[in-house]
Structure formats: structure tokens, C-alpha cells
Nucleic acid binder design. Sequence first.
DNA 1: GCCGTAACGGTTGAC
DNA 2: TTGTCAACCGTTACG
Length: 270
Amino acid sequence: MEQSTFGEVNQLGGVFVNGRPLPNAIRLRIVELAQLGVRPCDISRQLRVSHGCVSKILARYNETGSILPGAIGGSKPRVTTPNVVKHIKMYKERDPGIFAWEIRDKLLADGVCDKYNVPSVSSISRILRNKIGNGGNGQVPPQAYENKNQIMPQTAAPAPIYNQFYPYSCPAPSMPPVPSPQMHPQAHLPQFTPSKPPPVSSCVTPCMMRAWAASSHSVNDILGFRSPVPQSMAQPAPMQHENMSSIGQNYNMNYYHSMKPPMSPMYLQS
DNA sequence: GCCGTAACGGTTGAC
DNA sequence: TTGTCAACCGTTACG
């Protein structure tokens, strides 16, 4: 979407795009300032981000260790994967009188599913009724699977269920949590200081922007990509240091070269 | 004045 | 191709 090239202005004068996450650089800055002991209200004013948003981002960070937004859009993952259907069929063939809830228990006991992705009893019943009851040849046709995009055989470990190409690099809700900030708080802290420009990727393309690794949540990983700010929103002033382009296009660079708080929105929309 | 959070209007992407 | 749905977003307002 080329929408929201202009965005909206909040009560603090900051520019935001309704419905879209703040740039990672700002999210990162919020966490960074909080780690430095800056109060949320001051972070809010300084970055011109609503205090509610600051609160949310910090709460998320404290909970997950990630500054990144969650997965937007999409549907819940299907749990009736080919492997699950295969096992259900196998259980039914071994014991035609087996109950759906028994199948459910066996799926858990055999490690086919875990408690997060095990199908409901009703789902199992539907599978038995629709896909196995009239199958009959011992083969489960690929087209019989509910999820036509499900191509990976299910294993005991839940597969990444959200697309890995979400431009804002989000963890799947059911994925194992990232290391807790309580355990390794520094692991998620910015690896740069105002006097030490952050490392950057030397080549970032819009395509790459959409290719966050699902588990890549370190700040270095984050900073290795340009934020999802559209190219048209990038700061027009040419960068003196190419190596700062990654963060410079998301941050108000004046912040690093002057102690004055930024007078312009942190991420210009136009 | 600060903080947490519900409500709201919006975007997104799988189905 | 289009519509629906359910996830998420940040802002605002309230307590």
C-alpha cells in the first residue's frame, strides 16, 4: 500500500500511521531510553509517541524480550496438518471404535501434537467424518487437507505458523518465547551509542525489509534492516555516513548530533 | 502529573 | 477476484 504516505499527527505532534506499527527504530529507542532510566512519560514526550504506546511497547518488551510488533493480519494456523490427519486415520484404523477424545489424547501422548496445536475433539470428529470416513484407500489425498498451503509434515515441535515475511518481523504467538530480558537484558539492548554508530547492513532492499527471520529479534538483527518506513518517507537529507543509513533513515539523525530534542516528527511521512 | 488499560478506528493477510 | 474474519496497530480518554 502506498497509503499513509502522510500519516497523521498525534497530540504530541508526532506522526503516526494509523493501524501500522511504529518504525523499529523508534520502538528500539523507546526501550533503549527506558533501559537508561528515562521515565515513560519523558520517553513519550521526547519521541512524540503516545504514552499508551510507550507503555505497550515496554510491556511487550518486558514480557517477550522483543521490541517488534506482532503479526498483523492472517488467519489462525490450521492444526489439522497432513501428519495429524494421517495419525488420526491410523488410530481409527487400529481401533474403529475409538472416540475422538481418545484420539486427541493419543495425539498428545505420541507427541504428534502438543497442547497448543492439538485439534479439538470437534475437529477430530470432522476429520473422521469428512476425510477418513469416506476415504477408504488408505491414502489421504493432499487436497483433502484443510490447509491447502500446509506442505510441511507436522512434527512434534510446532512449526512457525505465521509468515516469516511479515515486514516487521514478528514472533509467532505460539512460538517459543525469546530469551527473557530478565535473563539476558543486555542481549536486547542497542549495541551502539551516540558516539558509536550502529553496525548496518550494507545492502538493504525493500525485499529484504520483508524478510525478517521469524526468530531474529536481537537489536543487531533489527538494525540490520531498514525500518518499514516507506522509501518516500525516508529523510530527504543525504547521509554523510553511508554506514548510518540503516538507522539514520528511521531516527532523527539530529538526535545523535545535537542534544536538542528533535523538532520534526521522528519519522517523516512526507 | 504519571501510569495502566479499554475503546476506538484503522491495516493486514489467510482463507 | 472479492469479501470476511481475526489478528495486530497506535491514539485517545478515562480512572
